[in-house]
Design a protein around this nucleic acid. Structure first.
Lengths: 346, 346
DNA sequence: TTGTAAGCGTTATCAC
DNA sequence: GTGATAACGCTTACAA
């Protein structure tokens, strides 16, 4: 059933190499034979075997995607589809496919990465987030193939990465609350073993310090990047004897959970409790009240990472690069700065 | 740098075939040589070339994922990460990786599918949703490799598919509103060129009919599966001279948009306007008020599809199969049935 | 402009 | 238990 290049060659009355040349758009080939070859390909319903081609060209035109730790949980945060959107966008225009490598629950993700890097199934890898003391980084140092990180590696490395200035971003949103007059500001962080969480916490702390407000560990909680964590975190903060008047959540999903908890417990947002989120997910503007949040341009993060990787793969830009994606505080009603605003413009 | 099976063989003092046998866990091999081979592999930092292996075994241990039409938009709906979660879960346990094929914007997705199916890069394909008169189905009929559909194909086909009973599900949620006394029920549908949208609309219509309520086309709107569409759709329905007292939205994201519009325009939910959504996305319970919605067990949809495909790939279950995933109406406050309920239990 | 032949790194078949 | 050797389907010098 499945025909190969030899069949086509025979039917077209040419050699396999000629067929190969037609497939790969080799210029010096006569229109006549090209036409004959195409006809034969069509007649035999021929489709090139990408595997065989990869074996000889040593390129799979595929980008590997790796997420450390619990993949399941990573998928659940709206960050994932958004960053994937950016990566896909660039990849498809450059003719690359995407391989999601799925490590077994028991298997170390380091093994998965190793396999991916050495198996020749991908030309390059994008690592989607970075943990504190991430063992994957050691592997990446001895990279076998080009790698781009989304997120900040903990130390100086020779790896290319793209990231927001998360510290500054959290600083900005905290500062926004401080300027609105808040003195007791809580922080609800995501997974504490992710660098991004640490950076945002530090930005929060720095803003407080700049306002001469003592850092109170009882006002800081961490969880996973899930609604539940925001809900529970808010509970804890509100139960504190010196409860906060506002919250910096390091993720919109956390902020949603926090808003729900606050609402249930009889607090009005933003009057009793101002909340600022992170990421500006599509539903943020539909929250009640619409959520003030930091847009970190996730899609651009993905696009930039994919672009950097593809540049490397094309032989350009061999040096490790660092690119910072901008962020922007999107002020809506949950922080009390506005009273009304429609989420859509006509 | 990169070593191959020959290098390992040489270093271990055995033949390449023996090394291959060690790699593939061939039983009849002496512990002695096995140990020597492993040592050599480690010393040379050898990793098998998956491409070369695929070429001869004719299997890539990879499942292809295809979504028709605008990939970008598909990613944006929470359905995507959730179904992917289910697929990943099963795939990783069976040792399969996932390939996201990204068709160029201009390129027909039929071409992309063809390429994927013939290029030998994937062993099977999961098609993530089905359009009305989907041209991809014609291609799938002449399947080259096993395929599983998520969603209902429009006619009798010889393809394996898994789906919710979307008609029944919409019937159930509409019936719920009817039993609460609603007579004017609006329908906000997603993309009208998707089978799932049509099925849900039909279930809605059937319930009305059963209650002897005339179908009013002015109470039915369609859009994309995005917040904006729900917002705009709601506007249109509320502007109607005989405005609805309740809404069946065929997606939670649409319902969010609809709730936002209603709120802005001064309607109280559920008192002035009851709303029922679809999918039970994580944020549904955090809506204000918490959203009544149909849980369609998206993750299970993905798991089942992956399982069916992998069964086929393992040589089992060669006949086309159809599996229906259950659904469940999750009653929260947006339809007025309850007044209060906490989204989390302790 | 086209053909011949070697080789990409494996596994499978058949010996021994 | 282990080793030669021939594929797998393609690209790419090198020749013509």
């Amino acid at each position: 059933m499945a025909s190969n290049i030899k069949d086509v060659a025979q039917k077209a009355g040419v050699s396999p190499s000629t067929v190969s040349r037609v497939i790969t758009d080799y210029p010096r080939i006569s229109q006549e034979t090209r036409k004959r070859v195409f006809a034969a390909m069509k007649e035999l319903n021929y489709h090139p075997n990408a595997i065989a081609r990869s074996l000889v060209t040593k390129s799979s035109k595929t980008i590997g995607l790796v997420m450390p730790g619990d993949v399941n949980q990573f998928y659940m945060n709206p960050f994932f589809p958004e960053v994937l959107r950016g990566i896909t966008d660039v990849a498809q225009n450059a003719g690359y496919d995407l391989l999601l490598s799925t490590s077994l629950p028991k298997q170390e993700d380091t093994d998965t990465l190793q396999q991916m890097m050495w198996s020749k199934r991908v030309d390059g890898v994008i690592l989607l987030t970075v943990r504190v003391e991430d063992p994957l980084l050691d592997i990446l140092e001895k990279q076998q193939i080009p790698v781009v990180l989304i997120g900040r590696p903990p130390e100086k490395t020779s790896i290319t990465w793209v990231n927001n200035n998360n510290k500054k971003a959290a600083y900005d949103s905290t500062m926004h609350l401080l300027k609105l007059g808040h003195k007791r500001i809580g922080f609800i962080g995501g997974s504490p073993n992710l660098i991004v969480t640490i950076d945002r916490r530090n930005g929060y702390a720095e803003a407080l310090q700049e306002f001469g407000i003592a850092f109170d560990p009882n006002l800081v909680v961490f969880g996973e990047f899930l609604e539940e964590a925001g809900y529970m975190g808010m509970m804890r903060l509100l139960a504190y004897s010196e409860r906060p008047t506002s919250i910096v959540a390091s993720d919109d999903v956390l902020a949603f959970g926090a808003m729900q908890a606050a609402g249930e417990l009889g607090y009005n947002i933003p009057d009793d409790l101002a909340i600022v989120g992170f990421n500006d997910i599509p539903l943020a503007k539909l929250a009640n009240p619409p959520m003030t949040t930091v847009n970190v341009f996730i899609q651009k993060l993905g696009q930039t990472a994919a672009n950097l990787l593809i540049e490397r793969l094309s032989g350009e830009a061999p040096d490790p690069k660092v690119i910072e994606i901008e962020h922007e505080l999107v002020i809506r009603r949950s922080c009390g700065a506005f009273k009304h605003q429609s989420p859509f413009s006509f």
